[in-house]
């Protein structure tokens, strides 16, 4: 079994009102050296695959077809 983590982030040009709200909240708490906050998603997948290459290929397909929306999001894959 291979554990794969998919990180999904909003594309640079897409407005992130949730990140902005977090930014403002952190400022209000006294963390005033923040230049920007972006919120994303982390998805953990346990899967059976013969090796890391096969696992990565599978998760790439999953990311492109469902986990991320290519219009607004980027993704990256990390294998354990």
């Amino acid at each position: 079994m291979i554990k794969v983590t998919v990180y999904i982030t909003l594309k640079k040009d897409v407005l992130d009102p949730q990140g902005k709200a977090i930014h403002v909240a952190l400022n209000n708490m006294g963390f005033d050296k923040i230049n920007g906050v972006r919120q994303g998603k982390l998805i953990e997948i346990d899967l059976d695959a013969k090796d890391h290459d096969q696992a990565k290929e599978q998760v790439k397909k999953m990311s492109e077809q469902l986990l991320a929306n290519p219009i607004i999001e980027d993704y990256s894959i990390e294998l354990e």
Binding site: L15, P17, N69
Partner: peptide, 17 residues
């Protein structure tokens, strides 16, 4: 319809949250 590709674009979180 945007998620299945029949329409272009995407509907993201309201700017007011």
């Amino acid at each position: 319809l945007t998620e299945c590709g029949l329409l272009q674009g995407s509907l993201i979180r309201n700017n007011s949250l």
